[in-house]
Design a protein around this nucleic acid. Structure first.
Lengths: 153, 153
DNA sequence: CCCGATGTTCAACCACGTTGACCATTTGGA
DNA sequence: TCCAAATGGTCAACGTGGTTGAACATCGGG
């Protein structure tokens, strides 16, 4: 490689990968294995109240069939439960279990730890500038909200 | 979502996805379709001289079989060629074709365009702070070099 | 009361990666 | 010098996680 600055897109790919790898390593050290990156997004989405497969599908930017499979996998791992719809028998609400909340808390802890380490290298100011830059640009390009997250390749 | 700051990892995933989507859209507008994100990394790696499947494999962090398949696909698209090894009959060096170089140039153009647009939203200073922050942190965490790029999910 | 929209699931398929075995060539040490 | 290990590559079987397409039951508004 002998050219100018590295494109941001490439750096983002590396940074995302880096953080996710570390997250999984450290969760494994705490006894959490058998989980995939997408789990976190489902847990976050369902954290503040039940969601359903369709909502998850649009959040993740995949088909509802794929979202449903994902929820099944997570249910098998005891992270969420699919109850019966209260007022609408079509819906199968996804709720986070106690175990799911523990994973969520552990992941948040690790993320804080990692961002702390980043701050140790480049300083807290630059970390926050980066967070703010990303947030502002993404919101500007997606009508005020943050875009869905989905596999890129 | 009702918690504190969005984790950097999540923002990186969104930003990467966002840029790659836009890249592909704009390349398509310029007549380039039928290509995948990984193509770019192969072209960059082979740009300054022939490389081989094994080197690509370690760059991309995949098996050499997967790298080989990727090169085959790109060869079929006329972006690279696999010649016969000059001094080592085992090697099948990968060289970029003229068409490959045109794609590389187009992609660079679009990346500049996109980063220009980012600068329009948050200012050039913050864009460069972000680039520098990422570069410094990644180098610090990977022994001075940038890490491989590979699918995360 | 019925027809369209909605939430879900089943089944077949496909893209892209993996593991494992194997072949040809090169290299280096006994 | 020669043979064994290392290296670059390929073939084949398989797994994961996504897709499309169809079907099903339930809900809601005319």
């Amino acid at each position: 490689m002998s050219d100018g600055p590295v494109p941001l897109a490439r750096l983002f790919a590396m940074a995302f990968r880096d953080l996710v790898d570390d997250l999984h390593t450290r969760l494994a050290e705490r006894g959490w294995d058998d989980h995939r990156p997408a789990f976190g997004f489902v847990l976050v989405a369902a954290r503040d109240g039940p969601t359903d497969a369709t909502a998850l599908a649009s959040l993740l930017g995949v088909t509802k069939q794929a979202a449903s499979k994902l929820v099944d996998t997570m249910a098998a791992a005891g992270l969420v439960e699919r109850s019966a719809g209260a007022h609408d028998a079509r819906r199968r609400p996804v709720v986070v279990t106690a175990r799911g909340r523990r994973l969520l808390a552990a992941a948040e802890e690790v993320y804080e730890e990692l961002e702390e380490e980043w701050a140790g290298v480049v300083g807290r100011r630059d970390v926050e500038t980066t967070r703010s830059t990303l947030t502002r640009v993404l919101r500007a390009r997606h009508g005020g909200g943050l875009p869905p997250i989905r596999p890129t390749w």
